[in-house]
């Protein structure tokens, strides 16, 4: 397996488990480190993520690529200023308190010209609502703003 194949495979694994988060990859020549960034807060403390984290790190070490792999989240020191690969978020999670507001303000068959087709709004848990899209995806920050504002969301949908 080449390094490139490994990185793409690893990004896909993370994306399958966390489709709601954008992912970036960049190699830093200065420190010889391959960075994978998950654009999420405090993900490294998540037990579910921890298993996947070491599945990827252990495989990287076993393949002896002679460099370092570092998986980071939003709290990291390192900026990925020129990402070579970006996988955009395919679904967004938002707070429970927004669920009915969002559900009531959208047309499920509505097509947003710029953003893609809305698939579903689903209540996953008491404090978690998942909003997923097909086709092109929302940029996380702008969508979250959008989702938190009924009026803006209704205009966009």
């Amino acid at each position: 397996m080449t390094l490139k194949e490994f990185i793409k495979g690893s990004l896909n694994k993370i994306n399958n488990l966390y489709p709601e988060f954008e992912l970036c990859y960049q190699y830093k020549n200065s420190s010889d480190v391959h960075f994978i960034k998950v654009l999420a807060d405090n993900l490294l403390r998540d037990d579910k993520f921890s298993d996947l984290y070491f599945e990827i790190i252990d495989e990287f070490n076993e393949l002896k690529f002679d460099s370092e792999l570092c998986i980071i989240d939003n709290g990291a020191l390192t900026d990925l200023d020129k990402p070579e690969i970006v996988i955009e978020a395919a679904a967004i999670k938002t707070g429970y308190e927004n669920f009915f507001e969002i559900q009531g303000s959208i047309n499920l068959s509505g097509v947003n010209e710029n953003k893609g087709v809305l698939n579903e709004v689903m209540l996953l848990a008491k404090d978690e609502v998942k909003i997923s899209f097909s086709g092109e995806v929302f940029q996380s920050p702008s969508f979250l703003d959008l989702a938190n504002d009924e009026r803006k969301f209704a205009m966009a949908a």
Binding site: I72, A76, T78
Partner: peptide, 16 residues
């Protein structure tokens, strides 16, 4: 996982 990531991130950032 957090400790591993932090040490690697810090090592890289120290060089930068």
């Amino acid at each position: 996982a957090e400790l591993d990531s932090n040490l690697k991130d810090l090592r890289s950032f120290r060089i930068e």
